[in-house]
Amino acid sequence: MAKWETALGEELRQLKREGRYRPLNVWTGGSGTRMELNGRSLLQMSSNNYLGLTDHPALIRAAVEATERYGAGSGSVRTITGTLDIHDRLERELARFKGTEAALVFQSGFTTNQGVLSSILGPDDVVISDELNHASIIDGIRLTKAHRKIYAHKDMAQLETALKESAGCAKRVVVTDGVFSMDGDIAPLPAIVELAERYDAFVYVDDAHASGVLGKNGKGTTDHFGLQGRVHIQVGTLSKAVGVVGGYVACDQLLKDYLIHKARPFLFSTSQTPAVAASCLAAIEVLGQSGELIAKLWENAAYFRSRVQALGFDTGASETPIVPVIVGSPAETMRFSDLLLAEGVFAQGIVYPTVAADKGRVRFIVTARHTREELDYTVEALRKCRDAV
Rank of each mutant, 00 (worst) to 15 (best):
A331E: 15
A331R: 15
T333L: 01
M334V: 14
M334P: 05
R335K: 13
R335Y: 02
R335M: 02
R335S: 10
S337P: 06
S337E: 11
D338E: 12
D338W: 01
D338S: 12
L340A: 01
L340V: 07
L340T: 07
L340K: 03
L340Y: 03
L341T: 10
L341E: 13
L341R: 15
A342R: 15
A342L: 09
A342P: 08
E343D: 14
E343H: 07
G344I: 03
G344A: 07
V345H: 08
V345W: 08
V345A: 06
F346G: 00
F346H: 03
A347H: 04
A347P: 04
A347F: 05
A347T: 09
Q348P: 12
G349H: 06
I350G: 07
I350P: 01
I350W: 09
V351T: 15
V351I: 11
V351L: 10
V351Q: 11
V351S: 14
V351H: 10
P353S: 02
T354P: 01
T354A: 14
A356W: 00
A356N: 05
K359W: 06
G360W: 02
G360Q: 01
G360L: 00
R361C: 14
R361V: 11
V362N: 09
V362G: 08
R363N: 05
R363P: 04
R363Q: 09
F364Y: 14
I365W: 04
V366Q: 02
A368T: 04
A368S: 13
A368K: 04
A368P: 03
H370L: 12
H370T: 03
H370S: 09
H370Y: 03
H370Q: 13
T371A: 00
T371L: 08
T371G: 14
T371P: 11
E373W: 07
E374S: 04
L375G: 08
L375A: 08
L375I: 11
L375V: 10
D376F: 03
D376Q: 14
D376S: 14
Y377C: 04
Y377F: 15
T378M: 02
V379Y: 06
V379W: 11
E380W: 06
A381S: 15
L382W: 11
R383G: 07
K384H: 09
K384P: 00
K384W: 04
C385A: 15
R386W: 12
D387Q: 13
A388K: 15
